[in-house]
Structures are given as C-alpha cells and as structure tokens.
Design a protein around this nucleic acid. Sequence first.
DNA 1: TTGAAAGCGCTAACAT
DNA 2: ATGTTAGCGCTTTCAA
Lengths: 335, 335
Amino acid sequence: MGISLKSIADDLSLSKATVSWILSGKGEEKGFSAATIKQVTDYARKVGYTPNLIARSLSMGYTKTIGLIIPSISDTFYSQMAQSVEASVSSYGYVLILGSSEGDETKEQQLIRSLRSQQVAGLIIAPTNKSDKAISMMLHDNFPFVLIDRYIPELRSNYVIVDNENSSYSLVRHLYSSGCRRVAVITTDMHLYVMGKRISGYRKAVLDSGLPLEDRLCVEIDRNTYIEDVKDKMNRLLDEVPDVDGFFFTTHYLAEEVMRYFIMHGTDYRHKFRFACIHSTRALDILSPEMARAMMPITDMGRKSVDILIENISSRDDFDQKELILDNTLLMEGI
Amino acid sequence: MGISLKSIADDLSLSKATVSWILSGKGEEKGFSAATIKQVTDYARKVGYTPNLIARSLSMGYTKTIGLIIPSISDTFYSQMAQSVEASVSSYGYVLILGSSEGDETKEQQLIRSLRSQQVAGLIIAPTNKSDKAISMMLHDNFPFVLIDRYIPELRSNYVIVDNENSSYSLVRHLYSSGCRRVAVITTDMHLYVMGKRISGYRKAVLDSGLPLEDRLCVEIDRNTYIEDVKDKMNRLLDEVPDVDGFFFTTHYLAEEVMRYFIMHGTDYRHKFRFACIHSTRALDILSPEMARAMMPITDMGRKSVDILIENISSRDDFDQKELILDNTLLMEGI
DNA sequence: TTGAAAGCGCTAACAT
DNA sequence: ATGTTAGCGCTTTCAA
C-alpha cells in the first residue's frame, strides 16, 4: 500500500538495510557509494516517502513525543503555558500530546496512564491534587516528568514553580505603602498549595504593615460558581467593611470578575481602590492599567520545564531532580 | 524490564496469545476458562501492566490519535477550540496531538507531514494559507482531515466554518438601525477568505442602509504590529472622520485594542459610540457589555469537526466529504 | 480451551 | 559497499 522502506528497497533492488541507513542520513558514514545514496534519496523524494514513526519507535524503544497535562486548555494561563511548551518541544524535534485534566484528580491519573501507554518520552504536568498514585508510580519507575506551576511538597521530583509567597508579600506591602489601610484578599481554592502561599504572603504583609488580620477581609470564592459568588461576596464585603480600600486577588479571573462587578455598578474603581493581582491578562491590563501585578514568567516556565525534561530523558538513570523556583516580575507603579 | 504481554505469559506459563485475548477483553468470547481469565486479569493488575500502544498500533495498522493544527495556542479563540477538540477526541477514546503553525505556511506543511508520519488517524486543521501542497496531498491520499474555521474554497474537503458574511451583515445593520450614520470597519488580514467575507457583509449592510461606502471608514491594521498600529490608525480616523459613530471589528483583539485606546484617552466610549464585533472575549464582555457580538459557536465547531473526522476515519473509502456552515449566535441589544 | 507463528515497518549488530 | 537477520511488543490466523 503505502510507501515503505521495503517497497523502496524492492523497487531499487536494494536491501531494506541499505535504504534505512541512507535515508536516516548515515549513508556516508557507513560508506555507501555516492551513486546509491543519490539514487535512494532521489527515489524516496520522488515517491514521497515518509517514515512510519510508529515502527521506528517500536524498534528503537522510545518515541520523540512528550505529553503535557494541564487543568484547562482554554484558561489563558495554561494556554500560554501550552503555547510555550509546544514551541520548545518542537524545537527539540519532539511532538506534543496534550491532555486536559479538568482539574479532576481521576482524569489526571487516567491521562498519565494513557500517555505513558502511548510511550511518551516524558511528561509535563500541572498537577491538580495533593498527592497522586500515578505520580508516585512515575517516581518509582524512574519515568521522566516535571511538575509545573503547582507542585507536591512531599515528593522529590523535578518542578518549575514561581515564588508565590514573596510576590504576594511584595504586592500587598506595596498596597499598604501607597496608602491603603484595609486590603481585602479575594481568593479561591485555599486548600491548594500555591494559593496557600499567596495567602500567607498576604498575611505577612498585613502584619508587617502593623495592621491586624481581619477575617472579614479574607474572601473565599467558590471556583465552580465564581461568577455568581463574586457578586454575593462583594456585596457582603462592601456592606460589612465599607472602608475597604484595597484588593489583593490571588488569581486573574477573580480580579476580572470584580472589575466587572464595579463596572456593572458604575463604581469609579480606578480612583476609589488600589489593586494587586497574581498573574495578569489582557483584560486586566486594559481595565486597570494601574493594578499592581505579578507577571508570571509563563513562557519561561514552559521553556525551562521542557529543558529539564529533555535533559532528564537523555540521562534517565543518573539524573538529579531539578527544582526551579522562578521569580515573578512585579509591575508596580512608581517602582 | 517493563511488564509486557510476554513477561506475563512467561510468569503464568501461558502463551502470549492467551494473555492478549484475555487482556483485550475477548476472553469470554474466545472461550477461555473463567479460571485463566481471572488469573490473567488479576496478575496483570497486580504487576501494573499497561499495554504498549506503539506496538499495538504497529500491529493493527492504525493509531487512536488525532492531530490538531492551529495558528496559535494562546489566542483565546483557538485555545477554546483546542479545549473543545480535546474533550471530544478523548471522549472517543483518542488522544490529541497538538501543533502550532504560528500562522506560517511552511510550518503548517511540516506539521502535517510530521503528524502523518506519526500515523495520526486524522487531522483537524485551521489552515493559514490559501492553498496548500500538503493539503492536496492528503486529498490525493484520501487521508481523513477536516478544515475548521477557515477553509479553502478551491478544495473539496470536509470543513466546519461559520457564516461570517451574514453575521457581519446583521451586526452592521443593527448598528445602523440603532442610529449610527457612519460606521467604521476595523480589520486585519483582508486577504484572508474569512476576513473578506466579514468585510463584504459590512459593505452590503452599509449599502442596504442607503449609505455610501467610504474608504476612510475602512481601517486595515497590520497584524504583526497591531498594538501600535491601532493607535496610529485610530488617531487618523478620529481626525479625518470626527463624526464616526460606530465601529465594526472583524475580530476580537482589534476591539480590545480600540477599547484600550479609548480608556487611555479617557473617552466615554460606552455612550459616544456603538460597537459590533465578530467573536467575543471576556475582556470585551466586561469592557463593553452593550457591544453587539457574533458569538462564534467554538465549542460546537470543535465537537462537530471531531464527529466528522471520526466518521471519516471509520468509513474512509466511501465517505462523502461533509461541509458544515454553522450560525453565529448574535448578541444584540433589544433583540 | 490454549498455543505457535507470522507479520506490522523499522533498526542495527553482524555478516559478506 | 551492501545484504541477512533478529528483534521491538502486539494482534490474529490457523492448529492442536
């Protein structure tokens, strides 16, 4: 049917081996005559030969594909990450398999298994859960993978994350030093490791500013119903704490929703409050150019994690797990 | 090393064939004894056997992977598309390989070749260019693929697109009937088929509203420098046509940039102008809730194209290419 | 009720 | 300078 090594070999009355050597560029090295090299390459081009990578992989015992598992592809944060990972991966001559865990632990486990079954050379994962059977399994099998964005403190694995606590601290400190007295923190998923770090950064900043921690200033939004929940909780907050003068958002979409809230209410939010947010989006940039923001080095995170993964794949047995903590770039007025 | 069919067979003193039958669920059907079936499945679970899909694919002659090629992963439009495609693909038990063409024809060609080399069962492509050698090749080989969003009029292939011309027409008509007299169109990539349709929708609407087409009202932005270019062209437009009272954006990021322009200039854009845009984003929704918008059925497009592709894969030789033109949902005040 | 063996398309050690 | 051959891990026909 399709053009195979064998069909080319037959057509040219050569052996499969000869054709294989030549087409994989080792013709010279193996000492084939210039004539046959030319003959084979020309013929292969002419008939439009493309190697069957599945067969090659089986024979070689490895593939040139790597897998990426993220909670959501459409979230700007992860789509930027996927963009960067895809670019790096393909620059290494690999191909990217993408899976979405939907923030669901079970789906994540299944994906890991499925992709390993596909024989991906390695995996990059933005994990959704605290600790994971499939992840321990990879560790046990010495299978190359790197955790990105979120990580699991108990496990000694490759990871690339950002310094959430310090960034949060700096942002909130900045709010206070620009005049705020009562900064609310708007967050979700407080149980997640990253979120925890962001909140403790906030807390330290409040205390270091000589002010008390107030429960009413800590607003947790339910991620699954956040659009509605933001409205309710904002109503309550502004009611209970009318003199709130600053907001620290632990993640972008909460900030966006609060902006929407203000716009819907005709509030002159740009003059009335000061804002800080972890991560930024185009919408925030337009809606509130003066918002202090931690610009996550997403592209860098993607690139670095691929670098680490590729290195791990190449070394495999004697590879020291790499732990990388990148800094956010802080975007703050007057700094 | 790894757990394979053979290692299990050896451990259990059975043959590879037996284990294969049983583990692929055809144990009953083939009439194996309940005892061996249990023995094999239990043992496989115990040692954590996962089939090598590469080997299976080679043996079966096909894979359960499909490829998606889009111009940019981080653009919200395409990331939503990828999200939807991934979900459908995985619901069919397939796995998704993702490639980004970066809007570059050559990269797109390479990707098609590369993914076909990986033996993907089919391809979904948002093509960047008018006509494509690699695409004709697929047609020639009768290789299953479907074009999405954009398509190539000359080629008879599967495609899923939206009715750009009619949506644009309705949106612009709506602007005029709500009082506008001079609606500018802000666009990029006028040479692209889709953009052409959107612009001709605009033109028809202008004429049908009994107004003249004005060159100065048609603003083309350079996609590569659009952030700067929007500023320049907007300055010029407002200067040359001070009584412009409406804007039709042929794509989301242009609308966003113009919103930014207004915000930076402190313009009360929500009362001064009326807007319409093809596609919407979170930012636009927040910035200009009253903007008339064509809500692209992205999720539907993704899902439908996977459906078509899977069908094409199953039939292959006797498959009628499917052409699907979906409607945008129009979001317009008072309608 | 189970096994032997061929074959998927390619690589690579070992001939010649 | 080129060919033979034995796998890679799985499926599946044909036997037993």
